[in-house]
Design a protein around this nucleic acid. Structure first.
Length: 952
RNA sequence: GCCCGGGUGGUGGAAUGGCAGACACGGCCGCCUUAAAAGCGGCUGCCGCAAGGCGUGCGGGUUCGAUCCCCGCCCCGGGCACCA
């Protein structure tokens, strides 16, 4: 032994160091895996276990939004929510519940496909390698998942059931009377039995096969439509409305998106608009997320009103149907506006201007047809961004035709203008400038009449008045309608009744929500279980032919185009595999040749139902066993929606994933496949961990970990750099990984740090140098129980002193409350408080050491298991009872009251906890006698157990 | 423009009508050490030598008492955006 070895020996041999943490953590991770510690028993089936300590216990289903396994691996921000749910799940297990917590992978996605296009590596190869890496990183964090239940959406065993759910949706229709989906066979039965009328009234038996199929297909919840869709040439695929940003670009890649009429698969989510909206009431979700869904669905209640038009050149009588939320303002409808692309425009435009048309209405054109064509051309050339920028400036052109206001009988001009959208309502409005800002602005530009039909409030100085008030100028006694004096609500009801009685319209509801565009021209997604026959009709494959496996291809790329080439057409990667596309099948009428659907499903498909597969991941006969679903997700009584007990993830999925998943779940509910009618009962949005990034004078990012702060400025060496705050990312050179933190301090320290840095729902900056505080905390806990020099126990069986015992029970009580409410940061603060108190004691009483270790276990499970063992326990603490406070010890013996005089603390008194109010009052007045200066107080308020306030 | 969420020490945050700043980082001082690191202990909102005063974005209000409730404004973050 030489002198050189001395420094190392100065660290006490049994100190809780990173090396010891690492050893403990890996050992316990192996033990948990070997013993299947976190397996949650199902009520029946292969995952049932009647011997399990929680078999038959009250259940709790805790769910994370499962990740897309990206090639970059995890940074410290990613596992925040996962650690949060893990701490909560571990606590709930100790509190007696049977907790289901699993982790899977949303593994179809664009990045692996784009990588494949660049390198030729199969997306499956990349994705599976990424999943393996994620699993290793997550395992290192000690997350207590039931690993038997892990699924990946790319596994054929999984997507077989994604395809199966698609078939359920395809083979269903929405019965708007019953307000639920029903099997398509029941619709066909109604048609053939004659209880339901065919669209054109002919008996079902007289329709050809093709006609029948067309009628049925019009009702399906998944259908092919030739409709305007979002075509993104830069990505080579179409996109859902939800995937297009407000300025008309793709959310992913930021490429321009164009409206094109293309044949695509759609999902009839609009049929569920009402229920998706109304059932939000049942959900325990953050209010802002509910609001975003409400806004996205955008239900408007109003009326459809029919306006007869002047007879067109062709001699047809045409009526224009408008949608309005303000039928009560119909007396003020002084013109109509159609969207430029509205179907009726061409039929209505006459060849020549009527007499006396103002020059400003004509767009400077010699005849209406030229005016319409000219306006359409200008409107089409505008990008969405330009439209927005110019949204204040109203443009339009008169089409040369007039309509009749059904209530006033007045001839009112018809315009086209781009402020009316083809895709909303009927694509036409009655313009009421008196009560609508946009109509007012348009009326001013074209000098159109403005009639107020609601008396503005006293002192109103604006233009259009949209508030409530009595109706004015709204009587047509000769037509049987008089609204004058009525409030808005009453006037609406009266008008709708009149419209319906006279056949001029009816009450109506419209939605902003559009049907969901469900096909993508990509490779790396679920193939559709659909083939086409020689007539081009779509035919669903029978269940026995599932899964339709994704074939191998040489070229993973869809054909992409110049991002600005709006006239290009999609071409799918699968369409190039002709030997896969052309297939011979016997679908009941002998072997025939069919062509496969070559689109694939969007990335959202797998995430629409994965939470159900966790419940019964090995089931080869059903997507989920009904009993397992009822146990884990079933309603908890009359009116309850059921669903997972907790769902944690980022707010960025507020509309997309959460709306689609709710929709699928409701279809499955209607068809009797699940007992819950909402998938996620409680939603919690975790915040994000963000980071500082630094740029030098050239704007290039410099390694964030090498930057130091000196007197308020930031330096890399001697060079001053500029600080930015935002995401963590490779290109920003500010990534910190959980792996680095585990190596430097251990997973337990990392977990404690992430949970202690703030409330789970709040975003906050990462600060590596602060992690040491959590490390010191765990070292103190360790030191309280293990002697650093000898490794011997410092725990004694002698009882704790009264003060320590009271502190313990107060902390236990607080910790329970905090854990139930997922306030992990304040829980940890309390545990630190207790630890700091114990640290000051010469020895650690067992009656404090054991509950401390148990309360620490959800956050630092490895070191807690290790200490639990050193405390003499032979089994894992996973199912040990979480400490309970003794209520008798929560009542303080004496209370210190601050005494305020005129709102300022001027003294303190200590009195027995059960002192009468008079006693407290007298003691308080005595304590502040000096401040009162001999005067009698005007008022004395004694807040029991809190404080005394004296008004001098 | 409209709708949400939020502004508290040098930093992350705590307290939701009752002693503002729990707990932690950082900083300062000390112990240990030849020294450094680690660890441990003390102090640390601001002004002031002190007594004391001031202090939760700004202005007002309710209250014995307001970070908390109400009204008006400013700033930051998010969502929606001609939706009839």
């Amino acid at each position: 032994m030489t002198e050189a070895a001395a420094p190392a020996s100065e660290i006490p041999p049994f100190r809780y160091t990173a090396a010891l943490a690492d050893e403990i953590e890996r050992r316990w991770q192996d033990t948990w895996e070997r013993e299947g510690t976190f397996h949650a028993p199902n009520p029946t089936g292969p995952l049932a276990d009647s011997e399990h300590p929680r078999a038959g216990a009250e259940k709790l289903y805790v769910l994370d939004m499962f990740p897309y396994p990206s090639g970059a691996g995890l940074h410290v921000g990613h596992p925040l929510g996962y650690i949060g749910t893990d701490c909560f799940a571990r606590y709930q297990r100790m509190a007696g519940r049977n907790v289901l917590h699993a982790m899977g992978f949303d593994a179809f996605g664009l990045p692996a496909e784009q990588y494949a296009v660049q390198t030729g590596t199969h997306p499956r190869t990349t994705t599976e390698a990424n999943i393996a890496r994620y699993k290793a990183q997550l395992r290192r964090l000690g997350l207590a998942h039931d690993e038997r239940r892990s699924v990946a959406t790319i596994d054929a065993d999984f997507y077989r059931w994604t395809q199966w759910v698609f078939l359920q949706i395809y083979n269903a229709w929405y019965d708007s009377e019953a307000k639920r989906a029903r099997p398509i066979a029941e619709l066909i039965a109604e048609f053939s039995g004659g209880s339901r009328r065919t669209p054109d009234g002919r008996p079902w038996g007289e329709l050809t096969d093709a006609e029948r199929r067309a009628v049925v297909d019009q009702h399906r919840l998944a259908y092919v439509s030739q409709a305007p869709v979002n075509w993104c040439p830069g990505l080579g695929t179409v996109l859902a409305n939800e995937e297009v940003t407000a300025d008309g670009r793709s959310e992913r890649g930021n490429f321009p998106v164009f409206k094109r009429n293309l044949k695509q698969w759609m999902m009839r989510i609009t049929a569920y608009g009402d229920r998706l909206l109304d059932d939000l009431e049942k959900l325990d979700w953050p209010e802002p997320i509910k609001l975003m869904q409400r806004n996205w669905i955008g239900r408007s209640i109003g009326a459809h009103i029919e306006f007869p038009t002047s007879v067109s050149d062709s001699g047809d009588e045409r009526r224009i149907s408008v949608f309005t939320t303000r039928p009560d303002t119909i007396f003020g409808a002084t013109y109509l506006v159609l969207a430029p692309e509205h179907d009726l425009v061409d039929a209505l435009v006459p060849t020549a201007w009527p007499a006396g048309v103002p020059q400003a209405w004509t767009g400077g054109q010699a005849n209406p047809r030229a005016a319409v064509a000219g306006y359409r051309k200008v409107a089409a050339a505008k990008t969405d961004l330009e439209r927005q920028a110019e949204s204040k400036e109203k443009t339009g052109v008169f089409i040369g035709a007039y309509a009749t206001n059904p209530v006033t009988g007045a001839q009112i001009p018809i315009f086209i203008a781009d402020y009316v959208l083809a895709g909303y309502g009927t694509g036409a409005i009655m313009a009421v400038p008196g009560q609508d800002e946009r109509d007012w602005a348009f009326a001013e530009v074209f000098d159109l009449p403005i009639v107020r039909t609601v008396q503005p409030a006293e002192g109103f100085a604006g233009t259009a008045y949209t508030g409530d008030g009595p109706a004015i100028n709204s009587a047509a006694p000769e037509r049987g309608l008089d609204l004058n004096g009525l409030g808005v609500a009453e006037a609406k009801a009266r008008t709708i009744a009149w419209l319906e009685a006279k056949g001029h319209g009816s009450g109506a509801v419209t939605y902003r929500l559009r049907d969901w565009l469900f096909s993508r021209q990509r490779y790396w997604g679920e193939p559709f279980p659909i083939v086409y026959d020689e007539t081009g009709a779509a035919i669903a494959l029978p269940e026995e032919l599932l899964p339709v496996e994704l074939p191998e291809v040489d070229d993973f790329s869809p054909r992409t185009f110049d991002p600005a080439d709006a006239e290009s057409n999609p071409e799918t990667p699968l369409s190039r595999r002709r030997d896969w596309v052309e297939v011979e099948l016997d679908l009941g009428d002998g072997p025939k040749r069919y062509t496969r659907e070559t689109n694939v499903m969007p990335q959202w498909a797998g995430s629409c139902w994965y939470e159900l597969r966790y419940l019964d991941p090995t089931n080869a006969d059903r997507f989920v066993d009904p009993e397992a679903e009822r146990y884990w997700m079933g309603p908890r009584g009359e009116g309850d929606c059921g669903g997972t007990d907790l769902y944690v993830g980022g707010a960025e999925h507020a509309v997309l994933h959460l709306l689609y998943a709710r929709f699928w779940h409701k279809v499955l509910y209607d068809l009797g496949h699940v007992s819950s009618f909402e998938p996620f009962r409680k939603l919690f949005n975790q915040g994000y961990i963000q980071a500082y990034a630094y740029t030098d004078a050239r704007g290039a990012y410099v390694p964030a970990e090498e930057v130091v702060e000196r007197s308020g400025a930031y330096y890399l060496g001697d060079v001053q750099v500029n600080r930015e705050y935002g995401k963590m990312g490779k290109s920003l050179r500010n990534v910190v990984t959980p792996d680095e933190m585990c190596a430097a301090y251990g997973a337990d320290t990392f977990r404690v740090y992430e949970m202690s840095m703030g409330p789970l729902e709040v975003s906050r900056p990462w600060e590596t140098r602060a992690v040491v505080g959590s490390f010191r905390f765990l070292q103190r806990v360790w030191r309280a129980i293990v002697d650093e020099r000898s490794g011997a126990s410092r725990v004694v069986d002698a009882p704790a002193d009264e003060a320590t015992r009271r502190l313990l029970h107060r902390i236990v009580d607080g910790v329970r409350g905090d854990m139930d409410a997922m306030r992990f940061n304040t829980t940890i603060a309390k545990l630190i408080e207790l630890t700091n108190a114990v640290t000051r004691l010469p020895q650690t009483p067992r009656e404090v050491a054991e509950p401390l270790v148990l309360m620490l276990a959800p956050f630092a499970p490895h070191v807690a298991e290790e200490l639990w063992r050193r405390l003499g326990h032979e089994t894992s603490l996973t199912y040990a009872d979480f400490p309970v406070a003794d209520p008798a010890l929560l009542v303080a013996e004496s209370v210190t009251y601050p005494v305020q005089v005129n709102g300022k603390v001027r003294g303190r008194i200590e009195v027995p906890a059960d002192a009468a109010e008079e006693t407290v009052r007298a003691a308080a007045l005595e304590a502040v006698a000096a401040a009162l200066g001999g005067k009698d107080p005007r008022k004395v308020i004694v807040v029991s157990g809190r404080m005394v306030s004296v008004v001098a």
